[in-house]
Design a protein around this nucleic acid. Structure first.
Length: 570
RNA sequence: GGGCCGUUAGCUCAGCUGGUAGAGCAGCAGACUCUUAAUCUGCGGGUCGAAGGUUCGAACCCUUCACGGCUCACCA
């Protein structure tokens, strides 16, 4: 189906102050974010006269390609816990670590300039150029994309750039400590390895200053700051001073605990791939204690996310990934947060792009009505729903229940209005009334616009064919209805159309129910079975045998449009 | 081989810090001159994977087992 080219306003990003603290939080909340917040608070025993500490919550990933929605689960999980901590009155530092000093291992298939990128393999991603030529590096391009999106869902951590820190030798002492505990670290890692690390293994790695690649061999350490390596490609040797060199770094399983100690991290969750015995969290935890002398942070494991209902559009095997941007095309920021806030982190769930989308929006709306006390359910459930709603918000919730735009109905109105957001929203009768009374705030219009845009995107890209229709403009040639319904039926339909046009002026004032009754009468007066009349009318109006409930549909279209559509058939 | 998670109504799941088993969908019955996975009203339906244990009381805690899934032992 051809879609009219519609210029939609972009989803509005959130620019005001972030929602910081919620005074109404029930301290006994059993929401998983609150339970974890309590766990974090308990992990630091405070002496009587000790000042309230700042709790450090951390998250981070390697920006080595497009950041996908699975990665997003980690950062939103931390964000929710951070909110829970702040709601409990704790001071929190929320850090997000871009591991942009990691090695560029593989060129993702969805990147342009594949051949040029190939030449940078084994370099640190912070030195690989941005194939789009906009940012100062490949890593930075991926980072910027995510940082901009996170603002829209109300997540604003303090970003730490590991490449900058390593290259400025901020971790010189951390690396030296690792070297001093070389054997301890090797023993810990060997506990779980199938093949033990070789005797000439070193707990640091080096990028060659001659080639920028990590293809180097460490030859020795002087017991202080001097590290000697050989560049495998050029066979050149060099001694670096850890206090000044930009080239040294720690491998992952040592880098992680070193940073926990360096930043004093109190909480960091990790994916299930890290959370096995002998996995990276496990060995990092041991190294953290044995080498850096501090306890590993409180953690939990979050499960993977799958995608449902993008059949045919993007196959996951083609290497194309679903990112936060894709999710925000269909789900508003609040509903996106709702998906994660309402699901325990250690359960796998699917983000749906099919008909489930409607249900998710309906669930969210119900949650909102519970929050505002419109819908009543038992107290225990109410508390849980209220908490989920709070945690889903990007802005402060409004004082009273804002006017809801049910997703399904909004979809129909958008289809009737050919994607015109303003007209679709105003087709809700309540909108005009509330606007006159000055009860629709700017925030509400933002909500309406975001939701309408998501609905339109969904209709455009993912809704089943049965679900969508397009109102005929009245300029098309009349269809050859006679072949299908017979000349007599068409003749009768013509009569009915006349009658319908004649009463079109009453659309604005008549109730749906009486209008519906009139339609049946019109059909029978013209000698048609109502069923056939409806079918022919739908064919004329939307080119299909079915469509939106007629009474409401006609009222929404209005007398003028209905006449225009019917005119060619007189 | 180790670890983690799951097993609750026909289906998808909720039930979280032990207190009489819940929701949605499906099903059945009724209503609407009716049409979007139509709408509204009502109803039924579960030895909570199995066996033991702790407890006044267990879907929930402990032990063992069965089945399913994921993950680690290479890199991050």
């Amino acid at each position: 189906m051809p879609w009219p080219p519609i210029e939609l306003p972009p989803v509005v990003g959130y620019t005001g102050p972030i929602m910081e603290q919620n005074q109404t939080t029930n301290p006994a909340s059993t929401h998983w974010a609150d339970i974890n917040a309590d766990k974090i608070l308990r992990s630091r025993r405070l002496e009587q006269d000790q000042q309230a500490p700042t709790y450090v919550c951390a998250s981070g990933i390697t920006p080595s390609g497009t950041v996908h929605i699975g990665n997003f689960r980690e950062i939103i999980s931390v964000d929710l816990v951070v909110r829970a901590l702040r709601d409990k009155g704790a001071k929190v530092r929320f850090i997000y670590s871009w591991d942009d000093y990691d090695v560029f291992r593989k060129v993702p298939k969805n990147m342009p300039k594949q051949e040029e990128l190939e030449t940078y393999l084994r370099w640190p991603i912070t030195l690989v150029p941005d194939p789009y030529g906009k940012e100062k590096s490949y890593a930075r391009a991926n980072e910027v994309a995510v940082e901009n999106l996170l603002v829209k869902v109300g997540i604003q951590p303090e970003y730490l750039y590991q490449a900058d820190k390593y290259r400025a030798s901020e971790y010189a002492q951390g690396m030296r400590t690792a070297l001093e505990h070389r054997n301890t670290i090797r023993d810990i890692m060997n506990e779980f390895r199938s093949e033990p690390l070789p005797t000439d293994w070193w707990p640091v790695s080096v990028f060659s200053s001659f080639t920028n690649k990590d293809t180097t061999t460490i030859l020795g350490w002087d017991g202080e700051w001097g590290l000697t390596y050989r560049c495998d490609e050029t066979r050149k040797e060099e001694t670096l001073d850890l206090r000044t060199t930009p080239y040294a770094k720690l491998p992952w399983r040592i880098d992680w605990p070193m940073r926990w100690a360096h930043e004093g991290v109190d909480f960091e969750p990790a994916g299930k791939d890290h959370h096995s015995e002998g996995g990276s969290f496990d060995t990092s935890k041991k190294i953290c204690k044995a080498v850096y002398g501090v306890e590993a942070p409180v953690t939990f494991q979050y499960d993977f996310i799958s995608i449902k209902g993008r059949g045919g559009k993007i196959s996951s095997s083609s290497g194309e990934v679903v990112g936060l941007d894709d999710v925000l095309e269909v789900y508003t920021p609040e509903v996106t947060r709702y998906l994660f806030a309402g699901t325990r982190p250690n359960t796998e769930f699917a983000i749906s792009f099919d008909l489930d989308v409607i249900k998710i929006y309906e669930d969210y709306d119900r949650c909102e009505r519970v929050f505002y006390g419109i819908d009543t359910i038992n107290e225990k459930k109410r508390e849980k729903e209220v908490r989920i709603y709070q945690l889903s918000q990007v802005h402060e919730p409004m004082e009273a229940q804002p006017l809801q735009l049910p997703f399904r109905h909004l979809c129909n109105l958008l289809l009737i209005m050919n994607g015109d957001v303003q007209r679709a929203v105003r087709a809700f009768p309540e909108v005009g009334d509330l606007e006159e009374q000055g009860l629709l705030t700017e925030g509400w219009w933002e909500y309406a616009q975001n939701r309408a845009r998501c609905a339109w995107n969904w209709l455009h890209s993912f809704a089943p064919e049965d679900f969508v229709f397009q109102v005929k403009s009245g300029t098309e040639d009349p269809e050859d209805l006679g072949a299908v319904y017979g000349a007599e039926a068409v003749d009768q339909a013509r009569k009915a159309f006349h009658a319908l046009s004649a009463m079109a002026d009453t659309f604005e004032t008549i109730e749906e129910k009486p209008l519906q009754d009139r339609l049946y009468n019109i059909a029978r007066d013209a000698g048609l079975e109502p069923k056939d009349f409806f079918e022919i009318l739908y064919r004329v109006m939307v080119g299909k045998t079915k469509g939106p409930r007629l009474a409401g549909f006609l009222k929404t279209l209005g007398a003028q449009r209905v006449r225009t559509i019917l005119a060619p058939y007189f």
